[in-house]
Write a protein that binds this DNA or RNA. Structure first.
Lengths: 363, 363
DNA sequence: GTGAAAGCGCTAACAG
DNA sequence: CTGTTAGCGCTTTCAC
């Protein structure tokens, strides 16, 4: 029991079908790939033989012959992140229609894994690559780029290298987030970051700063809390926030998890949201609808992002890139919900406004 | 620009390396696969040639020759479900160590996809299969089982067919959930289901009924709300709950999403959790920590579940199954948190208790 | 220890 | 329209 060694022996090969149908293997192959180049009588004969024998072509053999695998590698930083899971669905939906399969490369912040996927590309197990990572994976000495395979960057553009990229307007939205908070009367801000060093974090952080500058605020008007794109970053930020004597009232989080972790933590300390502090997130993950209060956030078109990335890769693989395909940037939608509201009108807030106005005037 | 058709032409082949090193292709192959069967001088020669040429073996060619692909197909109902995402991580962690890659089969409740993955297995693109679905995928006429590949069921056992399965103790935990609510004094219950017709739902539902029976309650003591394993099922359940005049006070949800959707909805209608109604979830997803209040739930060892499933598949592929490997059932952990509490001591509750006692006595 | 040669199972020229 | 033939790039006997 369980002693027999599994061995992948092809039960029925194309030659068997050919014999049964009384034709050559080439004809069988034609029936399966180019049915129109075959007489209909022959077609029926072969199809019947295929049915009777239960034949399915061996795709490894075909791949070797045709030099294509019909598989695409999708490299993502973290599978458990709902953002990437959603993008992956979009990718899957689009690629499956064109007959491509997906091999997922889950990085999980682990360099060995990265190396593995570089080898995968180098050894031609895939026809194309979708990078959700914002960088080209490396394998000590070699880079995934050396494989010479078509690559498309999704979610985060890849700096320096000329690959098509499909992203959202991170920077613009982050900028609008600040403007939105300012409109609500906030004048002291908090920024909960995402994974330091990543492109996405740089964009959102940059947009946040742009927003501050555009509304007449500066570096002295906000605090910044750093950490990866996870809940606990928001928790840590909240703990720092709670220790402050003069707390910011308008918080922008670079991802919804950070926002939710923050809110949950400050609320258990008795801080009211949005009465005492407004929080705006980024991503629009499903859980944001079920957080308490319902999270105000910028919703990314995640599914469409995945689809668009996949479509671009297909074009690239087929040599059908148009001039507008190299840089696609999808817009975000502001979902105004329950974690943002007017800035508290306490004396302190007014004092700050006064001080700020003065300092800016004197500058 | 972008006009050149991408074509996967292998830049450097094993013959090139052989020529550079001045040896035969067989020797190059030996150096790469069985270094110990080669003189160390030859070894160095070949390695240097590999380095200089930037050679990476073409895995399709190797796969064809060795009749193995070193890839495993993992079929999951839904990628965006955090439960499966977490299991997948465990699978990945284990398989990657043994040099296997993962091809994801995301079903998303779509029969065409199912068919595709059946073909994938039939065409021998993978060496083994991990099913998180509780059933063998079908392709109209043919089943994935026909491929003759090693299959392991994870998360949900597969009925009727003899494949190894790695699951959690759904039934036992669901039963304990009821006992827990009963201990808290609840005597009118609600059950928020998961996807009707699935094995997992059947197990949890069955365990819930067992728990009722074990504590002396019956079919008249609970209401059942049906729907898939998603947030909105909990929302719908809550809406039905709110319309009831005599509401249950102890709710068990077959998944955390359902519990969270329920809680969010009843709270916005002014119902207090756990003062008015206690809710216990199932899964222990990360969100449960950030729901408000923090969700009481049974935590599945999701990562370990994935690892154990992958380990079992590896054994099966290597013909090393032991007698205890065919049925692995991991325990769950009850996380007692803030959505459960003593049953409200209102008159109604007491009345119900009295009525129940009487009816049971007369039965 | 190393090389020559024979395929893995399929597709794509090229003739007929 | 169909069959013959020649590989895709690699691994693995089998001799030497």
């Amino acid at each position: 029991m369980g002693r027999k060694r599994w061995r992948a022996v092809q039960a029925v090969r194309i030659a068997d079908v050919a014999r049964i149908a009384g034709v050559s293997t080439a004809t069988v192959s034609r029936v399966l790939r180019n049915p129109d180049r075959v007489r209909s009588g022959t077609y029926d004969l072969v199809i019947e033989a295929v049915r009777r024998s239960g034949y399915t072509p061996n795709s490894t053999a075909r791949n070797l012959r045709t030099r294509r695998t019909m598989n695409v590698l999708v490299v993502a930083p973290r599978l458990t992140n709902p953002v990437f899971a959603q993008v992956l669905r979009g990718v899957d939906d689009e690629l499956i229609q064109s007959g491509y399969g997906i091999i997922i490369g889950n990085l999980d912040n682990c360099a060995e894994r990265e190396a593995r996927y570089v080898d995968l590309a180098l050894s031609r197990q895939v026809d194309g690559i979708l990078l959700l990572t914002g960088s080209i994976p490396m394998n000590g000495t070699r880079s995934m780029g050396e494989a010479g395979l078509p690559i498309v960057a999704v979610c985060a553009a890849i700096p320096d290298i000329r690959v098509p990229n499909v992203t959202v307007q991170d920077r613009e939205a982050s900028c609008r987030a600040v403007e939105y908070l300012v409109q609500l009367g906030h004048c002291k801000f908090g920024y909960i970051s995402g994974t330091p060093g990543t492109i996405i974090e740089a964009e959102r952080s940059g947009g946040f700063l742009e927003g501050l500058a555009a509304t007449g605020f500066g570096l002295e008007d906000f605090v910044r809390w750093e950490g990866p794109f996870v809940f606990s970053t928001g928790v840590a930020a909240a703990e720092a926030f709670l220790r402050m004597k003069e707390r910011p009232t308008g918080i922008f989080a670079a991802c919804d998890e950070g926002a939710i972790g923050f809110i949950k933590t400050v609320r258990s300390a008795g801080v009211r949201v949005p009465e005492d502090v407004s929080v705006i997130g980024f991503d629009g993950i499903e859980f944001a609808d079920y957080a308490e209060p319902t999270l105000t956030t910028f919703k990314q078109p995640l599914h469409e992002l995945g689809r668009a990335g996949a479509r671009t890769l297909l074009k690239l693989m087929q040599g059908k890139m148009g001039p507008t395909d190299w840089n696609i940037r999808l817009p975000l939608t502001l979902l105004e919900r329950d974690t943002t509201g007017p800035a508290p009108k306490g004396e302190k807030a007014l004092e700050i406004v006064a001080r700020d106005r003065k300092s800016r005037a004197s500058a």
